[in-house]
Design a binder for these strands. Sequence first.
DNA 1: GATCGAGAGTTCAACTAGTGAACTTAGCTG
DNA 2: CAGCTAAGTTCACTAGTTGAACTCTCGATC
Lengths: 154, 154
Amino acid sequence: MKRTRFDDWPCGIARTADLVGDWWTPLVLRQAFFGVRRFDDFATSLGIPRASLTARLDRLVEEGVFERVPYAESPARYEYHLTPKGEAFLDVLLAMWRWGEDWLNPADNPIPVQLVDSESGEMVRPKVVDETTGRPIEPARLGLAPVIPGRRDQ
Amino acid sequence: MKRTRFDDWPCGIARTADLVGDWWTPLVLRQAFFGVRRFDDFATSLGIPRASLTARLDRLVEEGVFERVPYAESPARYEYHLTPKGEAFLDVLLAMWRWGEDWLNPADNPIPVQLVDSESGEMVRPKVVDETTGRPIEPARLGLAPVIPGRRDQ
DNA sequence: GATCGAGAGTTCAACTAGTGAACTTAGCTG
DNA sequence: CAGCTAAGTTCACTAGTTGAACTCTCGATC
């Protein structure tokens, strides 16, 4: 699409959007968290076009989100395993999940998919807090620092 | 692009990806959190093509993320204000910000943009926890329920 | 030995969203 | 009247997306 790139903007949101800011990448990563590792399993479980999947996986391997791990020699076969960087992305998916469940739940959705703790069986409700204080983050008190005046790529 | 739609998939991640799963929408919303309200201010502060901005704002108004509020009568002028639904999206942006700062920080980035609490002046470090227990969410213990076997649109 | 199927892609044409620049509309200002 | 501002719209061009078909390499089967 000749899309604008954000990967060197000095803002984590912009750089994250550059990498996962398309419709399929978050879902590919979601599948990875639920145990999908192989090309065909990604393709058939999501219905993503194979060419699109190839492009996504290549970029994610290049960025160190997935590691390409051989599991068969002849013919050579590879699995896509989440790296620590990839596993850390769970927080973003959880935030997306929570917002989607809270605010985009269609009225006629009969069976919402829920997150559970597999040991306790309890529902998991992801929430973003400040790591140091443990308190919710209030939009009104939030500021950017340093702000660079007139700079457009913030 | 004739893109696949996820807006009725029974998963919050998929529905969220359908709405904000493009490169510009997260940045438009980021600007809104930092006080931008008017068309030209979005356009010039981000460098987003005006046609793309129109499409994004229209969709976000339609979905109830922004409210179109008049601020002048002749000629009619409108501002885009975040609704409660839009404000709740801050959690997703914070998770993206945190991941981008932790894992996508280019080595040669001289001035990373930081989040601060404007009252205390302290750095804010967003972290996703389980709302009920207050504890971090462990990927290994996370499960989907109910899982619908063989269903591709989860 | 030929055929079949699995797995992991590649190739291709058609479609359509993203992009940048120019244009439009309406009122306001000097 | 000329110039300016704000909020879009229009248009040609470009490039990512899609679905279907094809490729390639094996191992297993008839």
